[in-house]
Design a protein around this nucleic acid. Sequence first.
RNA 1: GCUCCGAUAGUGUAGCUCGGCCAAUCAUGCGGGGCUCUCAAUCCCGUGACUCGGGUUCAAAUCCCGAUCGGAGCACCA
Length: 502
Amino acid sequence: MIEEIGERKEPATGLPDLEVGEGEKVVLRFAPNPNGPATIGSVRGIVVNAEYARRHGGEFVLRFDDTDPKTKPPMLEAYVWYLDDCEYLGAVPDLVVYASDHIPKYYEYAEKLIMLGKAYVCFCKRDEFKRYKDAGEACPHRDADVGTNLECWKCMLNRAYAEGEAVLRIKTDITHRDPALRDWAAFRIVETPHPRPEIGDRFCVWPLLDFESAIEDHLLGITHIIRGKDLMDSELRQRYVYDYLGWQYPKTMHWGRMKIHEFGKFSTSAISRAIADGTYTGWDDPRVPTLRALRRRGISSEAIRKFMIDLGVGETDISLSLDTLYAINRKIIDPVSNRYFFVWDPVAVEIRDAARMVATPKQHPDRDDLREIPAGSRVFLCGEDAGSLTSGDRLRLKNLYDIEIVDMELPTPTVKRIGTAAQEWCTIEEKPRYRIIHWVPDMPDEYLRVVVRAPDQVYEGFGEAGIASELGNTVQFERFGFVRIDSVDVRNRSVVAYFAHR
RNA sequence: GCUCCGAUAGUGUAGCUCGGCCAAUCAUGCGGGGCUCUCAAUCCCGUGACUCGGGUUCAAAUCCCGAUCGGAGCACCA
């Protein structure tokens, strides 16, 4: 009854519906080359594919497409990092597959295709073949008979040829109007050993992505492939193999190129170089677009997931700012992040007529528990605040008392206390009349040295002592922003925090 | 050069499959205001888009054609 009026679709929440057959069990996969940790781009692949699997009660496979020991060799730690990152994202794979474990299987199918007359061993030099291909002409090896090809293939496997001497090509249509589809390479010879010790130098003939992925997707029963549109042509190439073998290609969806303002263009190998030359401190440097960096900064997995899902899977190229991610994250962490004072570029200030007392700001504005900050006759102010003050200015030290600037000149900037204690003011419901700034006591054992590593710069200053108890937590430094307390050195009374966002 | 995609406000996104309910959704950003002992959060209010040109139609963001712009592929990388 009410239903017929509500025919309109639910306000879609990002992801378009998947085309799923009656009673079909969906299987999706994310297939990275573990030549570095998951970047923001990989995160999209993990989140979206896992989300579809979840929505349809299907399976999510994590497959390491680690079949390039030479150009972009896998990094052993990255295998572990990917697993860990998937877990963080709530996308624990139902199955984890290593392509490098299946090389013999790929050989089987290669042989099958050779027998079918659909693959041939090509001895052309790279540019030589390119000339034939661009002209739409068959190379001299294309028409070799099955027996010859089989024999040459065996020679390849038996290390009879050197690297670069021979490749196995899939026969498509050498006159195809799209040059990208003409007789593509499926296997090449690589003499560099594979980084995985269990693989090492066992193989010298390695499959290329199009072949490896085509076979794997079929064997794993992948029903839907969702990935970036840079792999759109891959589908067209792989369909030849599927047709020859009588298989049915999975349904596909592609998203457009993703560019992030804050990071510019990035590639795993470029980051790798920058880490090697010391530009970045590591794969979780706050300036780097990896999931590990975002995690370290305190960006929650819920925020990342929602952000990625909201993007949907449009084929439009997008250029986005992380502001939206930060806004989502802020809503999540704000209610659970305790507040602290942190002054950057600190300036020590002498207070005349200082009352020795304890300020008791709330731990969080929504709650009533208080933290305690003893104050003596000296405090640290933010350099930014101090720099803007001139003699005669009046302001409120947050949760303490009001002061008037006597003289901000170095070496001893001086202020004097005016009025009564703020705590008393509060009880008489009097609002502060002046600008409010935060502060940190300049008393032994009552402050910590704090370093905040942010994407744009490193901030150094002092923070209140209570920060030491927040190791691993996200907190808000008032008037500064949200940070995650990354390490606490009790003996040296120092803390390192990673900046999340304002 | 050849081929394939795409084009909704500053940014991202919904709507496009099956033209009318779209003087176009939501989020973020931005502007203004309320609240607040944080420049945060929160609450109000506001801002702003169908790339252009033709065609089909009673009716087009939605269909067709062309142009323009953007992206991708044409690797013995993934």
